[in-house]
Each structure stands twice: as C-alpha cells, then as structure tokens.
Amino acid sequence: MDQILGNISLLIQFPVVNINIVLQGVLIGAIFVLAAYGLALVWGVMNVKNLAQGDFVIAGGYASWWFNTNLGLPALLGIPLAFAILWGIGWVIYKLVIRRVIERDLFTSLLATFGVGIVMAQSMNLLFSADTQSLRLDYDSLDFFDNLVNLPIAKLVGAITAVSLAIAVIVFMKRSRMGQAIRATAQDARAARVMGIDTEKVYAFTFSLNAAICGAAGAIIVLVWEIQPFFGMGYSIRSFVIVTAAGLGNLPGVIAAGFGIGILEQFGAHIFGISYQQAIAVLLLLMVLIYRLAQQRRNRQVLQ
C-alpha cells in the first residue's frame, strides 16, 4: 500500500512523467489497435472468436526476425514480408480448420482456435527455440524535459506504420469490391449469398487478411519489445478486451479502446507494479462485460 501511495506521489511530484507514460501508452496502443481490428473483422464477418490472435502476432514477429537474421534484410522490410507470409498461413489455417467450425456454435470455434494457438506456439518453439528475440532499429531516442520523457524513434516508426496500415485497411474495406463484399457478408451472409457473393471466398479472404494484419503487428512488436513463442496469449487477451470494450463494428471505438488500454496499462504498471500490467487488461475486460450485461438487460436484448 505504501508503495502504491509512493508511486502516486511520484506522479504528482514529477508531473512531466505523466506525459511520458501517456506517450509510451499511445505508441504501444497503436499496435494493439492493429491486432484488435483484425479480431473485430473476423468476429464481425464470420462470428469466429479467434483465440489464436496473439499467436499470429508472434508468428509475424518471428517471420520478420527470421528474414532479418538469416537473410540480412532490413528490419522494416520485415513488416510487409510478415504481412505476406501470415496471409498464407492464415489461408491454410482457414482451409484446414476454420472452414469447418464457422457454422458451429461459439464453443467449438473457441476451442478450435485455442487449439490452433497452442499448435502455433509450440511449432514456433520448435522452429525458433524459446529464446526471447528482438530486432533493433539503429535509431536514437529523443528526450525531453531532462530525459524524463523519452521518445525512442523505433517506437515512433512502429506506431506510424501501424496507423498507416490500419488506415489502408479501412480504406480498402470502404472502397474496394472485396471490401464491400466483406461488409455485405457481415451484415447478412445468407442475403449476400443470394446476391451472388461467394461467401466462402469472402471468409477465406477475411481470415487471411486478419492473420496478415496480425503478422504486420508482430513485425512491429519485434522492433520495440521482445517476442517469445509463448507470449501470444497476452496479445489475444488485449485484442478481446479492446473489441469487447468497443463493441463490434465500432471502428472508432476500437481505435480509442486500443490507445486507452495502452495508456491504462502503463499507468497501472506504474502505480500497482509491473506484475499487474496484464491483470489490468483482464480487469478491464471484466468491467466492460459487467457493464455490457447491465446495458443489455436494460435494453431487453438477447445475446445470440
């Protein structure tokens, strides 16, 4: 308790630190947004809650890391490469597993994707070993206010890439033929089929796109943090929290919630200690669920 009070008083004593914490939260939140957006896509279009989301992220990180360490490609090139490779992996997983569980109940798809996640984590463990890995961009850190606020340029580059990719995907969904088909399928798959949309193709595309987005997010994560084959769960949980908090189909909500969770985690870690950083995400999920339940009861809606 003393420690918690001490930590809060630090925030008051050095107000500049708050800026730093918010900044770190925003920079990392941008990456959470990316993974969460992918989840929202799959969830909304196919009603599949993908528990392997985090493992896609980690796989993307390893893809980028592998190209950099084995072929000496520039670290930033790893982002499009991870996007492409995870697209392929996502497509294979869709054809092998997801296709068979799409029409089943919620529990089956949860179990199936959970299984996919375990298989992926273990495969990465066998392929790349359990060492933590990271890539370094040889950029300096900018510092302000007597080094109380740091802005590592690598993190800035990561966040900007994440935001640009998110914008690209949003434009794609709005403008392109495929994007329209995806949105149509999300609204009513049966009607879309009647109108001549090949929903099977739409599903495969959506799932691959999600894997690819996660892959790119992972390729950014490996630039700013560490990855390890078994770190996927943390990103899965964060994605779920963000999507649940924002609500399906609420894109601005996803973005706001992503940044919010980034910032809250950093504040939580500062005040309660770093071991509670992820607990804060889970606590948030709980609170959101309780709130939503209460809201639903008021509106007399039913859960599907």
């Binding site: 930590n7 630090l10 004593q13 050095f14 630190v17 730093n20 914490i21 770190q24 990392i28 933590t132 080094n147 109380l148 943090w225 560490e226 990855i227 390890q228 078994f230 770190f231 769960m233 943390g234 950093q266 870690a269 500062h270 200690g273 770093i274 071991s275 950083q277 992820q278």
Partner: peptide, 19 residues
C-alpha cells in the same frame, strides 16, 4: 518490484529508476 512471467516491457520500472 516483481516482474511478470511473460515480461516484454519494463519501462514503468525504469521510469521510476529515472526519478
């Protein structure tokens, strides 16, 4: 402070080290 099992970011602790 105690680090979590799946640690990849200890910036919050280092922030305090700075202060």
């Amino acid at each position: 402070e105690k680090l979590p099992r799946d640690l990849s970011d200890m910036a919050p602790i280092l922030n305090k080290v700075k202060l």
